[in-house]
């Protein structure tokens, strides 16, 4: 096995930065699809941490966990896109601000 020369902290920082990018995307962007993609970035940022921990601490649970995360993310994508399509049929827009029947 090749020992990485990149320290664990770098991977964790990358993952944290990606996670924050995801959060900012969810909070700032108003396009439903982009918000949705930002959430996926958050989940995949976590996957990086999981794999990095596994590699550097000689563990194996995290790899299983990251597979589970991918499965769940795929299921979530299918349900999420279905919801967006159902919504689009009633109201042809993807702008979050126009969904205002219910007061936030």
């Amino acid at each position: 096995m090749f020992e990485g020369t990149v320290p664990l902290a770098h991977y964790l920082t990358l993952s944290a930065v990606l996670f924050v990018i995801g959060i900012v995307g969810v909070l700032v962007r108003r396009n439903v699809i982009v918000v949705f993609m930002s959430i996926e970035i958050m989940l995949n940022a976590v996957n990086i941490s999981l794999i990095a921990f596994d590699h550097y601490l000689n563990l194996s649970n995290g790899q299983i966990f990251s597979f589970m995360v991918m499965c769940v993310a795929a299921a979530e994508v299918s349900v999420g896109l279905a919801i967006i399509i159902a919504l689009h049929r009633n109201k042809p827009t993807v702008n979050l601000d126009e969904f205002n029947l219910l007061k936030w």
Binding site: I83, K91, F99
Partner: peptide, 8 residues
């Protein structure tokens, strides 16, 4: 539409 919005 209300139910859709709740789901979203």
């Amino acid at each position: 539409p209300v139910s859709n919005e709740a789901a979203l």
